[in-house]
Design a protein around this nucleic acid. Structure first.
Lengths: 226, 226, 226, 226
DNA sequence: AATGAATGAGCATTCATTCAT
DNA sequence: AATGAATGAATGCTCATTCAT
């Protein structure tokens, strides 16, 4: 069996094991056994537990980014790009539960070498979203009302909320197999996101901001649905 | 030295250590040393590593909830309550970085006994936010346009986004001590949240929903800034 | 509460705990708690775990010997002395299960300081039995047929068999509370012993010995019931 | 070095250590060191201290039973079978002092899983002896005088006495290396046993029982050497 | 290309024992 | 006379990692 194949099997086993047990609790023994190879072979191919974990993170990160990018069709409008990107993300998170769990739960909680790698990838995604939001604003004819920092903040909130939603959905599907309500599909999740963020973006483009009421002269802007 | 005091010292040390290393990687030796006591004393007072972790989770959970509740003043309008609650949350997350990290990063990734405890507390907070959003809608005169499920979805997204934002801010302040831009204050974060969510709530109360464009007859609702 | 009383309470607790858990597994904490005192007090009165164990052994040994001696009435014939002594022994073992268990099971299996003490007491008992057997032989008019070594051997076998029987009976009563047959009383056990040993003694006094058959010239002696 | 060999070395070391220190006081470190291997290897091969102890008990039990069975030649008369079995037993106990000590002293005093295993083996031996005694009685022409229960009682006493004797002999040889008298050989011990038990069996087959004297009309039966 | 055999280092946990009061 | 507070030293067990083959 060629090396490349064996290596992927090991990485698959590692993803599963890290997702199930966490980085520290996952043992190289378990990974090797699950991969159907002897432990020394894992070391021969992947050097160490840390290297193995890094490789896993890298592979899963790239896989996630690729999935999202593939979902976004180049020629479309910004809001459809965002819509498609979100659908791609939620679909990926649902289909690659373990890989996503490793990225979202394990990699960020285990010290410097790993957290940074994930942070970098996340940064790229946030930048991508920021770009999309800016383009959307332009398409809608908004010029000066929306500061760059505000767009970045929105993007961060968007990404964070999406992650949170994805994890929540995955947790749901882990417990309630017998529930009457099927858990939300990728489409549902994406729609929820679009509703919230798109609305926020629209209002903010209109110059509206929320501000603590009780201060004079902010009347029309601080109310809801004014 | 009286037992109660020592116990709090141990819990402080445990919070720090669990936050820094994660549950598995944190050793009882390190915790005991950081607390300035011998390991057997930690066991005498707190029974086991699991019990210690549980106790930490409980203490930090209660502390977080107390902080948020204390920030919310009873007599005010729903939007000011939300605003103050968010400020309280972000301030807490910034001031109790380690405690917050244990709750958000560690407790949720280490098996049933712990994850459930955090999930319960988080559920309470989501319920609290849901209630606030519903009240805000009523105050604004909205009656039928907003389904309960939608409010609950919004609340989930709000909480998830806030958590994500809080973690991001904490990560920023961890790295860039020498940065020219100070990272966002609790007020900034709360304002970002209010802008996004409040706007979303307002639009949705107006009956507007985002939907994939390109389908005829959806013009006025699906665009941005219409 | 006077010291002597407290000390006995501690020893009682120690006997129970040593019997239940074994020497090593018994913890000073458990003993102190069972005695209803604080651990330092146990140390104040009894110095160390080893000393406590030694004291227990001494107390229980003396108690056992006293019980046996008390059962033997001075003026009687040797066989009745033996009979009464055995009854006393079996009664003691049944009534002081824990003390007897400590002597028989624990003290002999835990290294030099303790095993020797028990061995000494056992030696005294064997000597006492040897004397009785010798006296019985004389009473029966036996003069030369029975060597001292043979009597000593018999005494050893008798004591060993009695111990074995006593433990067996105690084990029975530990399990089968619901059995239809009540386990043997002290009288039953003593009778069993007398039947075996007395018969053996009688035959040997008659000069009969078992010897491997098949050797010429041993005919009448090696058969059973010849 | 092949696994099977190492495993036996470990078991040898464990037998020695358990015999010397007792189950609880024996440390896996000591066993590993005595076996000339590292501790993890002991765990790799034998799982846990409990499993190791169980394995030891099983190995030594089987070894003991095999030794006794090997000593008994199939075609012989019952009394010779008993004689040879006893010689086998005493020889085994003397040659495998530590193994025998583990079975007799340690295994029976350390809780359910172990005590039961030894009890089972002991039960088999008692049954074997019971069978032999019954056969011997038949061979000697005894038909109705000896109840089954009495034979079983005799067998119990025989086994207990033999165990006790074996331990005594081993204790002797532990202390008195400089003594003038060599301690009894396996043959001596077996002869002692045969004399006592065979005599007892013979008498009982004759219908004689010991009973407390002083009661009129029991003359010929209760005396010694009648 | 692959593995059986082996280990150094660390960890959670417990226990006999001692002070200061 | 008695104890709450505290610890040094083990002990059972696990794991990442290596080497000889």
């Amino acid at each position: 069996m060629p090396r490349a194949v064996r290596e992927q099997q090991m990485l698959d086993a590692a993803v599963l094991t890290f997702a199930r047990r966490g980085y520290r609790a996952a043992s190289m023994d378990e990974i090797a056994e699950l991969a159907g190879v002897s432990k020394p072979l894992v070391y021969l191919y992947l050097n160490s537990k840390d290297d193995l974990f890094s490789t896993v993170i890298r592979r899963e990160s790239e896989s996630l980014v690729a999935a999202v990018r593939a979902a976004v069709e180049p020629g479309e409008s910004a809001d459809r790009k965002l819509w498609n990107g979100l659908r791609g993300f939620f679909a990926y998170a649902a289909e690659h539960r373990e890989g996503w769990a490793v990225l979202h739960q394990q990699a960020r909680t285990h010290g410097e070498p790993f957290a940074r790698e994930v942070a970098v990838v996340r940064g790229e995604i946030v930048a991508f979203v920021t770009e999309l939001l800016g383009a959307a604003a332009k398409e809608a004819g908004c010029v000066g009302e929306l500061a760059d920092r505000e767009v970045a903040g929105l993007a961060h909130a968007l990404v964070g909320a999406a992650e949170s939603l994805a994890e929540w959905v995955n947790c749901l599907s882990e417990e309630g197999t017998s529930g009457e309500l099927t858990h939300p599909s990728a489409k549902d999740s994406a729609a929820t996101m679009m509703n919230v963020v798109w609305a926020g973006l629209g209002r903010m483009m209109g110059g509206e901001r929320w501000a603590p009421s009780g201060l004079a002269g902010q009347g029309s802007r601080s109310g809801v649905g004014g």
